[in-house]
Write a protein that binds this DNA or RNA. Structure first.
Lengths: 352, 352
DNA sequence: TTGTATGCGTTATCAG
DNA sequence: CTGATAACGCATACAA
């Protein structure tokens, strides 16, 4: 390159150098080549390094507080060691239990879980784009209906390249998944309520969500009621907080229109409903039956233990991780799809 | 370079190419340069592109299902747009509420939260290394004592380079933090118990954790008891599950050695303890006082509302994010440190 | 408006 | 055992 052709990149919009010390900074201090620094710091045992060199590198690295740049590493290696876990970070006990389980599974592994918020309420495209900013080797999408579809759609081509397994209540046939047949679970719950003689059964869900008039839980409810020639009744709550549920229930109770049974879209709601009824002196189980979904621990230990449709969390997570590992090892491996059936756990809240 | 000097890197151990289409693949299809593809896909409005070119690029990208490689982008830009959120993914309601709050804060931002499991039980160095594999622009460490220390130690040099704010009960003076003075909160709780005449007060925590004989909560308990000339009594539980708490309590109740008050290390434990006592027909509040920590919603709505030391979640998260943003904008900005005081919320469980 | 060339910080290959 | 260097995929300064 001739001297008059020197390029001077003086005015970059954004500084490229992060300011952090790099491998070559370490090399300079240690008076050896950058390649050797890499070798030492790679921590591989199949590479031989002279003790003095190793020492020089390590002390230089320590002095500088050097930390390898993970983006550069990822670019070179073609892999990051990260597994993206897409889920709604909106809090729920069930989600917490699932996260807990997944975390235990990955603990012994080389992979690191990077949990990303995929917001159900917001535009799926937006969440989707954001979640994809995390450089991962594979993705687990847990209970994120919108994103699964978006991903599957855009995925005509890209999908086969990124290891992806969806897990939970929603899935796309185009990709690998471990699904839970909530419809079946809800059917079991309705069978149970109807076969124990309940006729006035209402479905409880937030009217701000899709669950209020669609999805496997609602569908099962509606079909069962119609199948028995009974009228449906939906109780919409603002949110699943104590306050807003109480507001709705108080009104119903005061107007003496409380049904014989309440099918709640999740356990938290069921527990709260139960508490409120009990505070009104209503006998949960005898007077009013309550059923929840997911099977969180609390349903077993609250004042009146609650009947619930328990998700097979452990098996779901285990299979998902297994499927994803297979795909990460061989991206061309065939799709793996499995549907699990939840379990109806009958407790006092639906006693006769 | 002369022809006899051609290097042929034919046999790489690991394939470098991920197999996914790259920017230049798109360029080839569209018959234009890679730079232009970048320009189109950057979505910047201050760059002028001819309509036909844009169209060509977009359709080629779509055809290939092209997705930019985030690692490469990060390397070039010097930033990833990710914020690392370090926390224990071991489930607890309090952690869930904090996560929920943080997520809301970042929702409107350009930044994406990448939640990483930092396991308290395991070697801090291990967790630490794993968490650092995520390429982030800044780090929030929530209630992760070991990692904060490890980071601060290693941080003599590196620390100033990576924006880092710790949040919650643990912090290092060497870095920015938003702390919560749990000691003060626990002092308030003990004052309350003692001033309402309780003398036999026990401290409840898992004996498998450090909390059983150290930390702000235990220290406050011990000091208050000693200060009043009262004997300390620690009740160690295996875990904070219903089963293991019940096992311990049953024994104590049967041997008629139940204290007048129980200071529980967290709300979940307090709620469970309360439930168990109530099932034994023991009047919570009158016969036995119960205090929890953190201030989760449930304490307000359970059978007997529980007195608790409430964490200032919202303010804590807001300040932390504010501090981190400042550091990310200007890495040389001075440390920001703040300590918040929790609030004692008195409820029926400590009624006289 | 578009193409060419450079560098981001690594790792792995090849030549000493 | 160590040093030089070619990629990895992208964004931008510069030239055209």
């Amino acid at each position: 390159m001739s001297c008059y052709n020197e390029r001077v990149y003086s005015t970059r919009v954004q500084p490229r150098r992060s300011g952090r010390p790099t491998r070559d900074d370490v090399a300079r201090i240690a008076n050896i080549s950058g390649a050797t620094v890499s070798r030492v710091l790679s921590g591989r045992s199949d590479i031989s390094i002279s003790p003095e060199t190793r020492e020089k590198v390590l002390s230089a690295a320590k002095e500088l507080g050097y930390l390898p740049n993970s983006a550069a590493r990822a670019l070179t290696n073609g892999r990051t060691g990260l597994v993206g876990f897409w889920m709604s970070l909106e809090f729920s006990t069930y989600r917490g239990e699932v996260l807990d389980c997944m975390r235990s599974l990955l603990r012994g592994t080389e992979s690191v879980l990077a949990v990303t918020d995929v917001d159900i309420e917001y535009s799926s495209a937006h969440s989707f784009d954001r979640a994809l900013r995390v450089p991962v080797d594979g993705i687990i999408a847990f209970d994120t209906s919108a994103s699964v579809e978006a991903f599957a759609q855009q995925s005509d081509r890209i999908a086969p390249m990124i290891p992806f397994v969806s897990m939970g209540a929603y899935w796309s046939e185009a990709r690998s998944f471990v699904g839970v047949d909530l419809r079946r679970g809800a059917d079991m719950a309705m069978d149970h309520l109807l076969s124990t003689g309940r006729k006035q059964i209402a479905y409880v869900a937030p009217w701000t969500s899709d669950l209020i008039d669609s999805g496997p839980r609602f569908d099962a409810y509606r079909d069962a009621m119609e199948g028995s020639g009974l009228p449906s009744q939906t109780i919409g709550v603002e949110t699943t907080t104590y306050r807003s549920i109480k507001q709705v229930l108080d009104e119903i109770i005061n107007s003496r229109k409380l049904p014989e049974a309440l099918l709640c879209m999740n356990d938290e709601t069921a527990v709260t409903v139960s508490t409120i009824l009990l505070n009104h002196g209503i006998k949960v189980g005898q007077e009013v039956a309550i059923v929840g979904f997911n099977g969180i621990d609390e349903t077993a230990h609250c004042q009146v233990p609650i009947t619930t449709v328990k998700q097979p969390i452990e098996e779901m997570c285990r299979l998902t991780w297994q499927f994803l590992q297979a795909q990460m090892e061989d991206p061309t491996s065939p799709l793996q799809q499995r549907i699990l059936v939840p379990e109806l756990i009958v407790r006092e809240s639906t006693a006769t």
